[in-house]
Design a binder for these strands. Sequence first.
DNA 1: TCATTATTATTAGCTTAGCTAACGAAATGA
DNA 2: TCATTTCGTTAGCTAAGCTAATAATAATGA
Lengths: 147, 147
Amino acid sequence: MSATDRQVADRLHSAAIHLLRQVRTVDSKSGLTASRLSALSVIVFGGPISISELAEAEQVRPPTISRLVKELEWEGLVSRQRDTRDRRITRIRATSKGRRLLLKGRERRVEKLAERVAGLPPEERERVAEAAATLERFSLPADHPLS
Amino acid sequence: MSATDRQVADRLHSAAIHLLRQVRTVDSKSGLTASRLSALSVIVFGGPISISELAEAEQVRPPTISRLVKELEWEGLVSRQRDTRDRRITRIRATSKGRRLLLKGRERRVEKLAERVAGLPPEERERVAEAAATLERFSLPADHPLS
DNA sequence: TCATTATTATTAGCTTAGCTAACGAAATGA
DNA sequence: TCATTTCGTTAGCTAAGCTAATAATAATGA
C-alpha cells in the first residue's frame, strides 16, 4: 500500500465526517436522522426484510437495528409481520406514511448539499457529480447486498 | 436546482454514512474515534487554538468541543493555557504524546479504507483518488478556516 | 467610575446511535 | 428427545451531538 493510498483514504475519511456534520444541521426540521433515513430507505426499496438482513445491509449489529425499528414502528413508519414458516423471524415493511416521509425527509436532508452542488461552477460541479458516482461504488463493501 | 444535483447530493450523503460505518470498526484498536481524531488533527496542525475557534473549525457547538477537549486532556493528549491578555480564553495545544498518537491513530483508522483503495483495479483507483481530492474541496464550507 | 452588556467557556441534562453480554423463543439435527 | 443453533430483544455501557443556564471576564457607555 502506497503513501498515496493512505492520503486518499485520509481525505475520504475527513470529507465524510465534514459532510455528515453539515447535513445534520437540518435534522431538526425533517425529524429523520441519518441512520433512520438510511434504514428506512433500505426497508422501502428492499421490500419486506428481516432484522438480521437489515443489520447486515446497514453494517451494524442487530441490537442497533432492533431499537431503531422499534422507534420507527412507534412513529408508524414501519410495521412488522411474523414469518409463518419460521416464527423467529419478523419481516419489516414500510407503511405508506413511512414511504411518504422517506422521500420528503431525504430530500430535506440532502437539500443543503444539493444547494452547494448547484452553486458550484460548471466544471467543479461535473467533477463532484463524478466523484459522487465513484464514491457510491466505493463506499459499499464488495459483498454488500445492494451492490 | 436540478434533479441531478439532488441525486449527486443523495449519493454523497449515503456514501459518507457508509464510509464512516466502515472505519468505525477499527476504533477499538486505536482508542481514537472519528471526532477526537478530527479535533486533535486541527489542534496539532492548527497550532494553539481557542475552544470557540475549534468549535467553528469542527462545525459543532462549543459544549461539544469543551467536553471533547476535557477528555483529551484527561488522556494527556492536549494541554490548556490561559490567554494572559483575555483571561476568558484558553488556548489548546497538543502534547507530544498527542502528536504521536494522532499520526498513529489516524493511520490505523484510515488503514481499512487505504487497503480497499490499494486493492482496486488501477483505473478505479485513479478515479477514487480524484474523487477524494474533489470531495476534500467540496466538504469544507466556503468560509472554512482551513480552506 | 461603575453598572450593564457581551463574550468565552463550562456544567447539567437530554437525545441518538453504536457496542457487548445475556437471555428467551423457535427451529434444527443427532 | 434433548442439545445446539439461530433470531430477536433487553439491559447497560460509551460517544457525540444538542439547548439552556451559569460563572468569569472583558468591553462599553452613562
